[in-house]
Simulated assay, not measured.
Amino acid sequence: MLKELIRKNPDTPILITVPHAGDIYPDLFIKHLKVNLCEVRRIEDYQSNKILGKIDEQMADIIIAQCSRAVVDLNRSRNAIDYTMFSQVFEHEPVSEKQMIKYGLGVFPNKIFGKTILKTPLPVSYATHMLENYYDPFHKSLHKQIMYLYNIFGFCYHIDLHTMPSKALLNFKKEPDIVLGDNFGKSCSIGLSNYFQNVFKENGFTVELNNPYAGGFITRNYGNPSKGVHTIQIEINRKIYMDENKLSLKNIKILQEIFAKIFNNLKLSEKIAAE
């Protein structure tokens, strides 16, 4: 349930992941759904993979998850499990990301905009199926490709692409267009973070760093600049490229052109990565 655009002979150490654009809802999920699917779809990073549509396929490897984040959230730890949703405890690792679970947003989301979406308790077989078929393949592919690029170049630039609802930004005097998350400087070099801040600002976007999103599990888990892996999360204000109420695209060509310009001309050296 992945779309993988992997180069045979990469010229750049660039990997882009899109974990939340998926719009596939397995029958097993629908079977346990207690609300209308239209309500659930509002959690999608709606067709955000299309933002990458004009990037030269030789400039980056791209991994796109096709199963919805409402089914399994790939940007959570595998152990971010709310056992009150299930008929029994089935993993022996300690539960992680307890605050997100409290909001109903663990690896198996159970609340969207405050509304419970699943009939519970769920059988253990539900969790096993979802993890083995949707969670594990994504993270295995991501880890494999990071290591592949690292082994070739000695470092890897990993960009994790997301979109954010505009209503999540109401507290800002000037609503940001882009929020970059580098886990407060822990997931990538200052050079890479500064590069993206500057290039978006040069293209007329307002940019925030780590506010309100500093990066999720993917950023925290994979970003390790001391070992040559530089992960940065990019959040894009949805109203730039879509109608949030109608779930339809608009003006996406503007973002496509800017992302193509960024990645088709991305000439970052090992020196910048090490800053």
Rank of each mutant, 00 (worst) to 15 (best):
K239L: 09
K227T: 09
K167D: 11
N133Y: 03
E275R: 11
I117C: 08
I55P: 15
Q88F: 07
V71G: 05
G104V: 14
F263Q: 06
T231Q: 09
Y25I: 07
M1C: 06
N49V: 11
R41L: 13
S193H: 11
E44L: 07
C156A: 12
M147K: 10
K3P: 02
S193R: 15
T12K: 10
K267Q: 13
V89C: 09
S187Y: 07
A60S: 15
V95R: 14
P94N: 15
S166I: 02
K267R: 10
D73S: 05
N75Y: 01
L5K: 06
G191C: 11
M130R: 02
G204D: 14
I81C: 04
K140P: 03
C38V: 14
I254T: 15
K119R: 09
L255Y: 07
G22W: 04
I30M: 02
P10Q: 02
V179W: 04
L37M: 10
L131D: 04
A214R: 04
E39M: 12
P10F: 02
Y148N: 12
I43E: 15
P10K: 01
A260K: 11
S248M: 06
I6P: 03
T163S: 11
D182P: 02
L122Q: 01
K102L: 15
A21P: 03
L209T: 08
I112S: 12
G154D: 04
L74T: 06
E132Y: 00
E257D: 13
I218Q: 01
G114Q: 09
L105Q: 14
E44V: 06
L15D: 08
M147F: 05
N210Q: 04
T17A: 05
S269I: 06
K267I: 05
G53E: 15
L268M: 12
T17Q: 02
D11R: 03
V207P: 09
K253C: 07
M164L: 02
A260E: 13
Y148W: 02
T219K: 00
R41Q: 15
K174P: 01
N211S: 05
Y150H: 08
H129M: 08
K253W: 00
H230P: 00
P212M: 02
K144Y: 05
N36Q: 14
K267M: 12
D82T: 10
V207S: 07
Y241F: 13
P176V: 13
L74G: 03
G216N: 01
K267A: 13
I258V: 14
R41E: 15
E4L: 04
R78F: 06
S193Q: 15
K34Q: 14
P165E: 04
N203G: 10
Q233D: 00
Y148H: 10
R7K: 09
S96P: 03
S226A: 08
S125T: 03
Y148S: 13
